[in-house]
């Protein structure tokens, strides 16, 4: 049984991701984001939260274009995240990267990436270096199921299993690669068999169940740390909103959407916490108030920060 702090922290993280992304959408509609390229992960919070909770401070991760959740779950500084989206010099990328390029090297977050699957190579390389140095670190590569049909996934999975690299491949299967359903993208839908084909365990998990995700991630990360090689995790989840702004997802069945929304990972977990007597409605209300305060502070910080400059872009072309 997990201790109460851990359980409450999981809830806090999921709510922080949800409310932050709701705020980001609001800022987007107000025209305050420096770039309109922005993909939210509402509905998928349990995956980022469960996996990151299973990582150690020295571990690495790489993230995707839908990466707000990963950096928040990793403990990223919300002030620098919002500042980045608002195009401020105090942002993680000095305001030039925006939503798709959040990064915090101090936290072992090696960057979210605009190319589907592109960062899986970087994750594999970080794991290769850990293996060569025997430094005990594990790398987590987050990606969507869309990345699994990219060539780089195949090359990375093959290499990682071949060399038993300390990496965990976490597929957040939100069922749609933009508009293309997973069932129309590949013939083999079993993560167990996909993993097996590369010579690594493939484990499917309910991505709406944060505790289940955490358990699977703990095992996979521990296995990687023992030098036994990679694991492919297929976390079944759902993107509650469209691919990006301006996508009402007409390609999805409305009944399916309703059915999936009924499995909101935050509500499911809240019910669990209530049932187990770990949190009360009053606790939840207090937590929501705290989250609102943290977000308001981050927005205030960002709005008071100086804007990004072209000079600093020019300075950073080469190291």
């Amino acid at each position: 049984m997990e201790d109460r702090d851990t359980l409450v922290n999981l809830y806090y993280t999921m709510v922080l991701i949800r409310r932050t992304e709701e705020k980001i959408l609001e800022l987007l509609l107000q025209g305050k984001l420096a770039s309109s390229m922005c993909h939210v992960s509402i509905g998928q919070e349990a995956v980022a939260t469960g996996v990151c909770s299973a990582m150690q401070p020295q571990d690495y991760l790489t993230s995707t274009h839908r990466g707000h959740g990963h950096i928040i779950a990793r403990g990223g500084d919300l002030r620098r995240i919002i500042a980045e989206l608002l195009g401020r010099e105090t942002g993680y990328c000095k305001g030039r990267g925006g939503s798709m390029h959040l990064v915090d090297v101090q936290l072992g977050h090696l960057g979210s990436n605009g190319i589907v699957g592109g960062h899986i190579g970087i994750a594999t390389g970080a794991a290769l270096w850990s293996s060569l140095q025997n430094d005990g670190r594990v790398t987590v590569a987050f990606f969507g199921e869309g990345a699994m049909t990219e060539g780089i996934f195949h090359e990375a999975a093959n290499m990682a299993a071949l060399w038993r690299l300390p990496i965990v491949f976490v597929c957040e299967n939100n069922q749609y690669a933009m508009s293309l359903p997973w069932t129309h993208a590949t013939a083999e839908h079993s993560f167990a068999r996909k993993g097996e084909a590369y010579g690594m365990p493939g484990i499917e998990v309910d991505g709406q169940d944060v505790l289940a995700v955490r358990q699977v991630a703990l095992q996979a990360i521990e296995r990687a740390r023992r030098g036994e090689g990679p694991t492919l995790i297929g976390a079944q989840t759902y993107r509650f909103l469209g691919h990006s702004r301006g996508d009402p997802s007409p390609y999805r069945d409305k009944e399916e959407e309703a059915r999936q929304r009924a499995r909101d990972p935050i509500r499911l977990y809240q019910e669990h916490l209530f049932r187990e007597g770990i949190m009360t409605q009053a606790d939840v209300d207090a937590l929501e108030a705290k989250v609102a305060e943290v977000i308001a502070d981050a927005v205030r910080f960002a709005e008071e920060s100086p804007p990004a400059t072209l000079d600093s872009v020019l300075e950073d072309v080469f190291a």
């Binding site: 690495y60 899986i120 390389g125 270096w129 060569l132 780089i152 090359e155 290499m159 071949l162």
Partner: peptide, 19 residues
């Protein structure tokens, strides 16, 4: 292995973390 993308990707990832 014959995997040019991951050869560069793995080298890059290693470079990013200290290699």
């Amino acid at each position: 292995p014959m995997s040019e993308a991951i050869i560069v990707g793995a080298a890059l990832g290693a470079a990013v973390v200290g290699g």
